[in-house]
Design a protein around this nucleic acid. Structure first.
Length: 362
DNA sequence: CGACGGGACGC
DNA sequence: CGACGGGACGC
């Protein structure tokens, strides 16, 4: 068992200082430190109808990647009897998402677990232990992505801007790795999706005090459609071959396309079409609203070097608008992908795949 | 630095 | 029928 009882000795040793300011500390959700352990919003008020686990169920964040559910249970069992322990894993790959739930039998043990295990260092991580909010659809998809922020704005500045719209669970400002300076991008997770929606309505396109450019406020992409997990899905392909590979005989699926094959193998006459210095851009049309980048990787990866994929999404819903782009390095491979995938049936849709045209004009 | 929402009580 | 993006999505 990788998690030893001895870890408990580290309790509270590593409480994290939150960027040097302690004022209003209960609102700074991003750091691991959590100084108030009262119940989540609204709980105190109607103890009669809350779920029975309101005072026993904990959410544990920032768990080490390799920690198993059994280790999670074991660690928290050192406090008291655990009714259940659940490590949340990726749906497809099954790897840990770095958080989980521990439900105690006894509320006193849950409170003690927060007091003693929150801030515990495990390997390179500092775990966060807090009461789990009651499970509900209304708390899902409440994470916002904010860009265009003045680089001078601190985490607290950003929280101050958003706090009037609801209860902020967590926030973060992205910083440049080298310089440590803000990239002008932040995430804010609200308690309720409706709160996030209000913030979008009010703040998207607005200018922070003293700023010259408006900010963008939108729902954050779900983690499985981020660049990072795209790479992971490339490294650990889950269900590729769904689309067949670059087999040699695929005439049966070939559709004639005015821009495919032959006579234009060099990039010479192709300035206006899909070519660019970085490869060949392919336009895919008639995608379903739930497709994500991973699907495009799976579709085009078998045909050769893919350097970029992009699903175009609606600003508000984050649903695919029906089309996307894929950039491939080599013309021959791109042409083969187009020849093979144009007319491909995906569910009840027939995809149209071609080199990207130039800007205007259909 | 570090992915905050599973699963199931169903009918 | 529809139809060609575009800072930055986690230091």
């Amino acid at each position: 068992m990788a998690v030893r009882r001895g870890h408990i000795r580290y309790l509270k040793v590593c409480e994290v200082e939150n960027q040097g300011n302690d004022r209003d500390s209960h609102k700074s959700g991003s750091s691991v430190k959590q100084e108030e352990y009262d119940m989540p919003n609204g709980y105190e008020d109607h103890m009669g109808d809350e779920p029975s686990d309101a005072k026993t169920n904990l959410i544990i964040n920032y768990l080490p990647q390799n920690m198993s559910q059994e280790e999670l249970r074991s660690l928290f069992s050192s406090i008291g009897e655990v009714e259940s322990a659940k490590l949340i894993r990726d749906k497809m790959g099954g790897h840990s998402l770095g958080y989980g739930f521990v439900n105690y039998v006894n509320p006193n043990d849950a409170e003690r677990a927060i007091n003693t295990l929150n801030g515990l260092r495990l390997q390179s991580k500092t775990i966060k232990v807090s009461y789990a909010r009651p499970s509900s659809d209304s708390i899902k998809d409440a994470n916002l992505y904010i860009s265009g922020l003045p680089k001078t704005m601190t985490q607290k500045d950003v929280e101050d801007m958003f706090t009037q719209y609801g209860h902020i669970i967590n926030s973060r400002i992205l910083v440049d790795q080298a310089s440590g300076l803000s990239r002008g991008v932040a995430f804010i997770r609200f308690d309720k999706r409706s709160e996030a929606e209000e913030a979008i309505k009010d703040l998207n396109g607005s200018k922070p005090a003293g700023a010259s450019e408006p900010i963008t406020v939108k729902f954050a992409a779900s983690p499985n459609q981020t660049k990072n997990s795209q790479l992971i899905s490339q490294l650990y392909p889950t269900q590729s071959r769904r689309f067949g590979g670059p087999v040699h005989h695929q005439a049966q699926r070939f559709r004639f396309s005015p821009m495919s094959v032959d006579h234009m193998s060099g990039a010479s006459g192709m300035n206006v079409s899909g070519s660019s210095s970085s490869g060949w851009c392919i336009f895919i049309y008639n995608l379903g609203q739930d497709v994500d980048e991973g699907i495009l990787w799976q579709m085009f990866g078998p045909f050769g070097a893919v350097t970029n994929v992009k699903v175009i999404r609606d600003f508000n819903t984050n649903k695919c608008k029906g089309f996307g782009f894929v950039t491939m390095t080599n013309y021959e491979e791109a042409a083969m992908a187009i020849a093979s995938l144009n007319g491909y049936r995906m569910g009840d849709r027939v995809l149209q795949v071609s080199f990207k045209t130039s800007k205007s004009h259909k």
